[in-house]
Amino acid sequence: MTVEIRIDPTRCRGHAICALMYSEGVELDRWGYGRVVDGTPEGRRSIKRALRAAAACPNGAVVVEDSADRRIRLAGRGPDGG
């Protein structure tokens, strides 16, 4: 399975958790907002870390989707918050 991780900038409030959990693919900018630098985690460990980052972000700003079909959301909140 190939997955893709993205950060919704309209939701991110700079809690910096994503950068702790998925440190290989997320950087924080000078304000502490997360910015994805490697959006396609490879390997089981990395994918797992990405999924954890998505589940942990207090604002649900981190979204992990199946990159083959972006409608399949694996972790993170939807635009409606559900």
């Binding site: 958790i17 959990m21 999924l51 954890r52 998505a54 589940a55 649900g60």
Partner: peptide, 11 residues
């Protein structure tokens, strides 16, 4: 356990 069991409630 944030992200696994405690998901978002940790916050």
């Amino acid at each position: 356990l944030a992200g696994s069991i405690a998901r978002r409630v940790w916050f």
